[in-house]
């Protein structure tokens, strides 16, 4: 849905602007129908007496879809603490966001669900400074409410009679799944390998699948539509979330202030409450 930039032909300005236009439209409307992407602008908070010295202005944050609830809350709190600032978010799959950023999308901060996607931006020289790891996430088994198939352990997922849906190895949650399969020696005869956590959760909460492997935070945010089954082996695949300001950031000072907030005590507390671990 997004178009690659036509870097090789800088003279064709119209093409470039068309591509930018389409990318911008994609950012606003959500890149794909099925990714849980959306743009949220937290409302400007009321002026606070304890206003710190964070610079005023707007910062645009591109963040992994799994951060949506947490970051939206953090943005609101940040604005309340720093009157005159606006934090705008675009949530999508980390790789979608990388495609958009390399395509010239106007982002100031990138928060990735894995180090791999952040690495792509680093090697493309689009990151300013060094990315900071601000959270971790581990997998958990999600089952339909009440766990009708009675899944208790990770090894249970090796049973073919239990219909398990996992992420495809190409996406981060699938890579984590593969790592745990390797370390435990359990092979999951998955009935489907989805391309996003949302799709895995959809199959589980609708009862089509008996079990799915998603992140702890996903189970938590799914509320009572699924029942979580934690398993100890999940520690063999810990997913790390890095955050970084981008070299094209228009407001570098504000970007650093927001990153500082996320890695600071308030941000960490909110992340912990959502189920994220400490890096």
């Amino acid at each position: 849905m997004t178009f690659a930039p036509l870097k090789s032909k800088p003279t064709r300005k119209s093409l470039r602007s068309l591509a930018t236009l389409v990318i911008a439209a994609a950012v606003v409307t959500g890149a794909a129908a099925c990714s849980s992407s959306s743009t949220t602008t937290a409302s400007t908070g009321t002026p606070s007496a304890s206003a710190t010295t964070a610079p005023a202005g707007t910062v645009v944050v591109f963040a992994a879809a799994s951060l949506k609830a947490t970051f939206t809350a953090l943005g609101t709190a940040f604005q309340a603490a720093n009157p005159g600032t606006t934090v705008t978010f675009s949530f999508a799959g980390s790789s979608d966001l990388v495609t958009q950023i390399t395509g010239g999308a106007p982002a100031d901060i990138f928060a990735s669900a894995d180090t791999n996607n952040m690495g792509k931006l680093v090697s493309a020289n689009l990151v300013s400074g060094t990315p900071v790891n601000f959270a971790t996430n581990v997998l958990e088994i999600a089952t339909p409410p009440g766990n009708p198939a009675n899944v208790k352990t990770f090894a249970d997922l090796g049973n073919a009679s239990i219909k398990t849906v996992i992420c495809a190895p190409a996406v981060p949650c699938g890579a984590a799944t593969a790592t745990i399969e390797q370390s435990t020696g359990v092979t999951i005869p998955a009935v489907s390998q989805e391309s996003s956590v949302t799709d895995v959760l959809g199959k589980v909460s609708s009862g089509e699948a008996d079990a799915g492997l998603v992140y702890v935070t996903d189970v938590k945010s799914a509320g009572n539509t699924v029942t979580g089954v934690p398993f100890a082996e999940s520690s063999s695949a810990v997913n790390t979330y890095p955050i970084a300001a981008l070299s094209d950031a228009k407001n570098a000072a504000l970007a650093q202030a927001f990153i500082g907030y996320v890695t600071g005590p308030d941000g960490q507390a909110t992340l912990a409450a959502a189920g994220f671990g400490k890096p």
Binding site: A33, C34, A168, V191, S192, Q193, E194, D199, G202, K203
Partner: peptide, 16 residues
């Protein structure tokens, strides 16, 4: 794409 992804899942050679 959309209906397949939602309804059928995604498994190489079977539904992908």
């Amino acid at each position: 794409f959309g209906a397949t992804l939602t309804f059928a899942g995604s498994l190489q050679g079977v539904t992908r």
